[in-house]
Design a protein around this nucleic acid. Structure first.
Lengths: 136, 136
DNA sequence: GGTAGCTTATTAGCCGGCTAACGGTTACTT
DNA sequence: AAGTAACCGTTAGCCGGCTAATAAGCTACC
């Protein structure tokens, strides 16, 4: 058996390099890699509860909690109590959290170009479709 | 701009799910996810120096050092001095480290099937080729 | 209404990645 | 020969993932 030829191996390998690139690019905007995905979720729908963020991001609640700690410290989001349920808190974007979206979009474009540098347009499209199927 | 449609986003998302699956499957063999890649490298070539392992795995030296700590504790590998250079150490597989390969191969097969469950054979092949291109 | 059980957030602690910084060796240069 | 530069391993400390356990609040059911 050759591990190197398995999709599981290749996916893990591609991930290592890509994660480093991602981290580097979002750092230039003042964010860490985990934070951007939480922000993306809030840009889609502001004021979500932590548990809902975790579910939508497919992450564990403690992971989301930790990431939110960083976002709170850096004033990208604020916490507010959920009126109908004292257990929950709602997470809202600050002005800064709203505005960083533009910067991230630019950094993301550069990252995307770099990611797909070795692929043709057709290959890029195919890759995206296959990754989407994989995620299900 | 829609982040969700970018390859960078989709790759990161696919990674999250896949990493959890990988961890779970290799746990059943008594290993952690990072350890398997180091072992794979040693199965290809036993007795490598840490710095060479790091280079081949595309990981930082401290990361390899940490993973080796776990492998040493669990007697999968041993350390030996490099005769010609007192700075280096060579890493060798133990009997246990050699034998776990068989178990991992079986677990890996299951993981591979699960990873590609939603894809046809043609799609699986394409995905592997695209991931390989991506990693360059 | 009270209890039992579910849900939410949080904490602690683990693994896997990284950078920065350090100590000890080797190699190079002068 | 001396001194400087490069290299190897290690430590410390950060972020991002996880599970397990806890405290607090809500629900549901008897």
């Amino acid at each position: 058996m050759h591990f190197e030829e398995s999709a599981a191996y290749l996916l893990a390998k591609a991930t290592v390099a890509h994660r480093n690139a991602l981290e580097k690019h979002v750092n230039s905007v003042g964010l860490h890699s985990g934070q951007v995905f939480v922000l993306m979720e809030l840009w889609k729908s502001d004021g979500q509860r932590q548990i809902d963020l975790a579910a939508r991001l497919n992450l564990s609640p403690p992971t989301v909690n930790k990431i939110l700690g960083g976002l709170l410290e850096n004033d990208f989001v604020t916490r507010a109590k959920y009126e109908d349920d004292a257990r929950s808190t709602r997470i809202f974007l600050t002005e800064k959290g709203v505005q960083v979206k533009e910067d991230l979009e630019q950094a993301w474009d550069v990252l995307e170009d770099q990611t797909l540098a070795n692929l043709t347009d057709t290959e890029a499209l195919m890759l995206k479709q296959l990754l989407q199927k994989l995620a299900e």
